[in-house]
Design a protein around this nucleic acid. Structure first.
Lengths: 144, 144
DNA sequence: TTATAAAAAGATACGTAAGTCTTTTTATAT
DNA sequence: ATATAAAAAGACTTACGTATCTTTTTATAA
């Protein structure tokens, strides 16, 4: 459902968060290696996330990526919104320009609940909660 | 979630079915006009659906598109599978190459139910059931 | 048997996502 | 000050989804 770019973004942010807990500030080359993504492209994605104020960065020796407010959790929705665009969860599943309960497409009544449950999920899950699962060894960040 | 091509395909098939009930066999130009899609591209999409044995066609004067077994309902899944590919509902939401209950990504437990409910929905809904809703005036095919 | 109307087919173009390469800027350590 | 290590930036390439244009094939009607 999500594009590769968004998947790289989420995995990269989770890895950055895990490293930050350990007091580290990883660079994009290390990140790309650890999440199994193309190196330079991951750099570009992180550049965009930095511009969107989702993560922070420091240039120069000893620099890298980090969260300056780790207490403030980042929902997956925020990441999706930044990369896929604001409209991502608003589109009609049948492709109509306008579609709502009062003027539905023939798929609306069945599609809307699915889309809304996806929306709910990405608003509940955060970079932090995913990192927590990994640190508890309940899930893995990659499959190399 | 679905690509434009799949949306055109579903809308086109619904329109063809509705016209078939009336004893008509529409051509791609008429179809494109009625579902508000690009004319030539819709022709290509229908060509692919014909090759995939989802719909039938006749060349020459009086030709057009039709279902040769209208009693056998076509699920949306079948259309999605033909256009987006077999893997569409199998992909990991986090982007991992392999991901299942035994070896999950940190999103798996929450993503899988959403993906499965989408899968269930597209297996229940058919071109015929969507057409029925439109014929009952409970939904519209376009929004011109 | 000829004109016509339709889908099929092939070539090409456009737009955006995905990815690479090179240069520039910035901070730090020496 | 200078070398070094890092992100930022810009130009470019590739792949694919989306779309158009032209020609060919096929069936029907006249």
């Amino acid at each position: 459902m999500l594009g590769k770019t968004t998947e790289y973004a989420i995995r990269a942010l989770v890895y950055i968060y895990i490293q930050n807990i350990k007091g580290e500030r990883p660079g994009f080359k290390e990140i790309a290696k650890m999440i199994d993504s193309p190196e330079q492209f991951t750099g570009k994605v992180l550049q965009n996330l930095t511009r969107a104020n989702i993560v922070s960065s420091m240039k120069g020796r000893g620099g890298g990526f980090f969260f300056n407010e780790p207490a403030n959790p980042i929902t997956l929705f925020k990441v999706i919104e930044a990369i896929e665009g604001k409209e991502y969860f608003l589109k009609c599943g049948f492709g109509l320009k306008r579609c709502d309960t009062n003027n539905p497409c023939p798929l609306h009544d069945d599609y809307a609940p699915v889309r809304d449950s996806f929306f709910k999920m990405v608003n509940e899950k955060t970079i932090q909660s995913l990192a927590y699962k990994i640190n508890k060894h309940e899930a893995t960040l990659n499959r190399l």
